[in-house]
Write a protein that binds this DNA or RNA. Sequence first.
DNA 1: TTGGAATGCCC
DNA 2: CTTGTGG
DNA 3: CCACAAGGGGCATTCCAA
Length: 510
Amino acid sequence: MLLADLVACSAAVASKSSRRVKVDLLAGLLGAAGPGDAGLAACYLAGVLPQGRVGVGWASLRDVRVDPAPSPDLTLAGVAAAIEGIAGVSGAGAEAERRERTAALLAAATSAEQDFLASLLLGDVRHGALEALVTDALGVATGVPGDHLRRALMVGAGLDEVADAAVAGGASRVRRFRLRLFRPMRPMLASSAPDPGAALEATGAASVEHKVDGARIQVHRRGRRAAVYTRNLADVTGRMEEVAAPALAARASSLILDGEAVVLGDDGRPRPFQETAGRFGSAAGAAERLTPRFFDLVYLDGEDLTGRPLAERRRLLEGLLPAEALVPSVATSSPEEAAAFLGAALDAGQEGVVVKALDAPYRAGRRGSAWVKVKPVHTLDLVVLAAEWGYGRRTGWLSNLHLGARDPGGGFVMLGKTFKGLTDDMLRWQTERFLALEERRTRSTVHVHPEQVVEVAFDGVQASPRYPGGVTLRFARVRGYRDDKTAAEADTIDTVRAIHRGEIRPTVGG
DNA sequence: TTGGAATGCCC
DNA sequence: CTTGTGG
DNA sequence: CCACAAGGGGCATTCCAA
């Protein structure tokens, strides 16, 4: 199949807003792909490379400028081979070599193909249809029911594998993808609610569990063999053997556990997330140890438990692991009891709680209302110091805000940026507002006179090696503009530091 | 040898 | 990771 | 409800250049 056909399809998809129309367009292309091309076509249309990222980023692409090819001769297989080559480069001279190979690939592409390949390499394809719609389209093109395809993806099959299986073998082949050991599955995700009462309304009778501020892990074990996977299914077994210990000690022939890995202090309290991230990201042999805390059991002694209710999975889990290897939990349908448990979790240094419906199955890869997280938030009134021009659907609007806290000694201290929480109306309003306050600008940023106050919500304050105050906000988002306040009334850097030291508690609800 | 830029991936 | 938009 | 797009901060690793 020619890349040009796929690129034309992408452009057509981008030009339509209806999901049904997008799916039909995608299905048309997938239907035209032969057995050898279906997997590649599905991946590329979904904006992903079968092998993941290959070491080509925005900066290296920026200075690769080659004349486009006059005619569209590239095939999907040719592109795949070229990308395979790029992915394989490492060692001294790798940057130049990757750049050279990238340039060679782009030189063989027409102008439209170059743009698409650049987005693909960056993992930044945006035509309003990614994996989910491509999966639907695959169903349309092959006649394989969508839930079979989705199920295969959830248990860890790659989109390329599923597409190839669907095209070559139809539904019966796709059904052969099952949850199995040492093939990581996609973890179940949680939605969120402002307080335990709202969460319980969504779930009904629930297991309320500590939300441990670490990194998600999935541990597979059979006999003496164990493996550890991340939320995105990367195999990190060699980096953290210690978190597999409870699985290896459990009395079972095989199992799959879901949980969180975190660095604990000597007092048993979780260390700041940055420490966990450091240990989680580093190779083995680091001084700090990761402690696993498990909250689910999805496979036991050869049996897939994902269809069983949480109550049963939790009971089996508690029979298998010692209490210290488990995330603390309480079963309740009382908002008061859940609120008290949340308070205790926060006192223990946890991030919040996750409220999980006791009767819900394990829905791999889904973010439904069966699991609901509750985290308290902080709020501050800060001052906008600058705003950056948006991209994509925010082109033409000032979007990303630079936030400053008032310095009692004079001036403002930048704490970070946010683009979240802004409606289209707010974007329109603030574009006009900040252009009126403009003091100077660069290509990307309009710096403004510091007088507009904005209410910002965030999860916490963390140390920053980048910002001048040495602190920054975690998950900052705009709550609204405060036209009733002047910059002189904005919150100070001292308050931010007090939050960082843990002297100011975040609030639940509202 | 070392500091910085780029990249990928955790939240 | 959070939020807003649109099908 | 689901999928997508808008982008945030930090850390470890890798490779380049001074």
